[in-house]
Amino acid sequence: MSIFSYLLPKRQNTASVAKERLQIIVARERSTRGGPDYLPQLQEELLQVVRKYVPVDQDAVNVQVDRESGCEILELNITLPEG
């Protein structure tokens, strides 16, 4: 830090960008943790099928497995674009 740094514009706060990106990716990875190994593949193939008909983002398809008292529930969420 010298006298010149006070005159220069402040550098971008990259730490907050890092935190935001991490929060999103970590939440996504946690949601599939402990699930069956085929889950990522299933998600990828579902995404391809949906994309045949509707243009959607990479994270538009969300697959999740929940365990409830003896049975497993495969939850599938597809977010379609507005309009």
């Binding site: 550098r11 971008q12 706060n13 990259t14 730490a15 907050s16 890092a18 935190k19 991490l22 929060q23 970590v26």
Partner: peptide, 16 residues
Amino acid sequence: RVENGQMLSVEDVQEI
């Protein structure tokens, strides 16, 4: 670097 906003702070990492 944390004070300059260039590195995740200990609170950030702990929160995640």
